[in-house]
Every structure is written in structure tokens, then in C-alpha cells.
């Protein structure tokens, strides 16, 4: 399939530049424009169009951090789907449960990092338990697995409502993560010539950094380790993997554990940046569904790209056209489905 594709794609763009080079050029140009927008002092007319430089740059930065959060949730979701063909519609509940557990541990011990660790560990264990006791029994029955996950998400939502009631919780971040960073970005120049620099909450930068570290870690795990090799092989052909002597169930359990753990981790991290309340489960499930549909089911890189697109679209929409901002997200999804139904990085099957 891919061998047949190659010549046709290069012949399309004629003799001069290949399609790849053209895309590279477009990418460079966009990067240059964004860099200018971020670092240059804006002329008056641009301020008039885009409200203010502070609003614009903050929206971009917020979009990036939100994308980081979405990526953490969606990467687990996409891994589980890629390997098991199981659309885990209880993934949002895992996020919310992780957040509540993080809140309990943090407020009882006073250590935020312990809360984060607990969110990951407990949810990873729950993920493995779910895989062993629920999904293994329904193996090969994709529809039934999906329906069971809907059931689990509804039951979990009501149980969490019973335990933690409907209140809004805020996970307290430690002192060393509080405060704001002054970024080398000039937002305005005062009349006396002094520059006003952009300040940005430190915690959000940490969220973004965590997402990048985990993204790179996942990529390394998938591409450089033996387990990663098994997972990739399982994504391509799980029957063959099983036939070649690998314990597929163990691989499934690992993936489910990591996926659920990441959701729990994201819950604690996200619950500290924003807040924890009933209904978050559905919100993050929907977000990761859209991210994964746009990025391509089963691909980590796709999840990163999808998260970036959706996060930026949400924040820019919120600032510049709040009423119709939600539409933007779904326009991206619809366009992706129309032009490239398998998602940006997805493989056509």
C-alpha cells in the first residue's frame, strides 16, 4: 500500500518541490509568524484586531498547557484502543477518580507529590483489575466491552457523587509551585520606555513540562523497549503476536495499567490547575475522544497533535469568539473526518 502511495504523492506536486518540502516551507513560515507575534512589540492596528498582545500570548500559552493536560488523558485512551480495539468509555471516570484520590491524599498528608503518586498508582491498579476481571471475560466481543465501559462510567459517576458529594474541590499545590514566572515576552511598552513583561503561572508551565516528559517517555517506551515492541506488534496484529509466544494478556494488563494510571495522574495534575467537580469525567472523556479522533486512533504522536489542535482551538475560541468557541473544536473534528477519516496520524485499515 505504502509503496504504491509514494510515486503518486511526489508526482502530484510536480517536478520542482516535493510535497514534503512544501509542507516544510509552510511549517517554517508559520513558525516565523508565531515567533514574531510572540516576541515583537505589536503595532497599534494588531492590538486593535486581537484585543491585546497579553490576551493573545496568554491564550496561546493556555492552549499549550491545556493541550498538555488533554494529551495526558488521551494518550492512555489511545493506547488502550490501539492495542485492544476497546473504546474505554470509562476513561473519564478514571480521570475524575484520580483527581478525588489526589485530593484526599494531598489534603491528609500535606504532600502534593504523594497525591500525584497515589493518583497514578491507585488508578493503575484499578486499570489492571478492570482488565483482568472485566475485559478479559469479554475478550473478542468489542461491542459488549464498549457497552460495559458505559455502564461502569455511569455507576462510577454515581458512586463518586455519593462519596464526595457535588462540591467543587481544589487540590492545593505546594508553595514551590505557586507564583508566577516572568517570561521574556514584552507585552507593552510604558510611556516612560519601560517594558512590561508577561507573567505566567509557574504551575501551568510545570503541567506542560510534565506532559512533554511523559510524551517522550511513552515514545521511548514504545520504540526502544521490549514491552514497547510487543505493544506495537499487538497494535498491528494481535493474533500473530499471541501466536509467536508472547503472553498477550500480560501485555494487555500493562497497557491498561499505564493508560488508567496516566488518566489518574492527569486527574491530580488537572485538578490542581483547574478544579475537581462531578461532570469532569464526561468533559475529559469527550475531550479525549475528539483528540483521538483528530489525531488518529492508536497513535501517541497523533494524540499529541490532536491535543495541541484542540487545546489551542478551545482557548483561542474562548477569547475571540466565546459563544461559538465550542463549535471550533467540532469543526476541526468534522473536517478531519471528512478529509482524513482515520485521523491525522492514523493508519487506514
Amino acid at each position: 500500500m505504502s509503496i504504491l502511495d509514494q510515486p503518486s504523492s511526489s508526482s502530484l506536486s510536480g517536478g520542482g518541490v516535493t510535497r514534503r518540502q512544501a509542507w516544510g516551507l509552510v511549517g517554517l513560515l508559520t513558525a516565523a509568524i508565531v515567533a514574531w507575534l510572540v516576541f515583537a512589540v505589536w503595532p497599534q492596528w494588531l492590538n486593535a484586531i486581537l484585543i491585546s498582545k497579553k490576551a493573545f500570548v496568554s491564550a496561546i500559552l493556555n492552549g499549550l498547557t491545556l493541550a498538555g493536560l488533554y494529551f495526558l488523558v488521551a494518550s492512555g485512551f489511545t493506547l488502550i484502543f490501539g492495542l485492544m480495539r476497546n473504546i474505554n468509555l470509562a476513561h473519564g471516570s478514571l480521570y475524575l477518580l484520580g483527581a478525588y484520590i489526589g485530593y484526599e491524599v494531598t489534603s491528609r498528608t500535606g504532600h502534593w507529590l504523594l497525591g500525584v503518586a497515589a493518583g497514578f498508582t491507585v488508578l493503575a491498579i484499578i486499570g489492571v483489575v478492570m482488565q483482568v476481571f472485566v475485559f478479559r471475560r469479554l475478550e473478542g466481543d468489542d461491542l459488549r466491552q464498549t457497552l460495559v465501559t458505559i455502564g461502569i462510567s455511569i455507576v462510577a459517576a454515581d458512586l463518586m457523587l455519593a462519596v464526595w458529594a457535588g462540591g467543587t474541590y481544589q487540590i492545593a499545590t505546594p508553595e514551590w509551585l505557586d507564583g508566577a514566572l516572568t517570561l521574556p515576552v514584552i507585552t507593552a511598552v510604558r510611556s516612560n520606555g519601560a517594558s512590561v513583561f508577561l507573567t505566567y503561572p509557574l504551575y501551568r508551565v510545570v503541567v506542560l513540562a510534565a506532559a512533554i516528559v511523559i510524551g517522550v517517555g511513552l515514545w521511548l517506551m514504545l520504540n526502544k523497549t521490549r514491552v514497547g515492541m510487543m505493544i506495537r506488534a499487538g497494535v498491528d496484529d494481535r493474533a500473530m503476536l499471541s501466536a509467536s509466544g508472547v503472553n498477550v494478556h500480560a501485555v494487555f494488563a500493562i497497557v491498561f495499567g499505564v493508560g488508567a494510571g496516566l488518566a489518574g495522574f492527569a486527574g491530580v495534575v488537572g485538578g490542581s490547575a483547574l478544579s475537581v467537580a462531578p461532570g469532569e469525567d464526561v468533559r475529559y472523556l469527550l475531550a479525549s475522544l475528539v483528540v483521538v479522533i483528530v489525531g488518529g486512533m492508536g497513535s501517541i504522536t497523533g494524540a499529541a497533535i490532536g491535543a495541541l489542535l484542540i487545546g489551542l482551538a478551545e482557548q483561542i475560541g474562548l477569547v475571540y469568539f466565546p459563544t461559538y468557541g465550542v463549535v471550533l473544536t467540532f469543526v476541526i473534528m468534522v473536517v478531519t473526518l471528512a478529509v482524513r477519516p482515520q485521523g491525522i496520524m492514523g493508519k487506514a485499515r
Partner: peptide, 18 residues
Amino acid sequence: SWVPIGNKDFSSVIAAIP
């Protein structure tokens, strides 16, 4: 500023306030 109900991340909205 009119924000959608159930919005979580207000930091962009806050940045856009004159």
C-alpha cells in the same frame, strides 16, 4: 466577556480583561 457554562480554564479570559 461571556463564557460558556461549565468552562474550566478562565486564564485566557482573565488575560483579555482590559
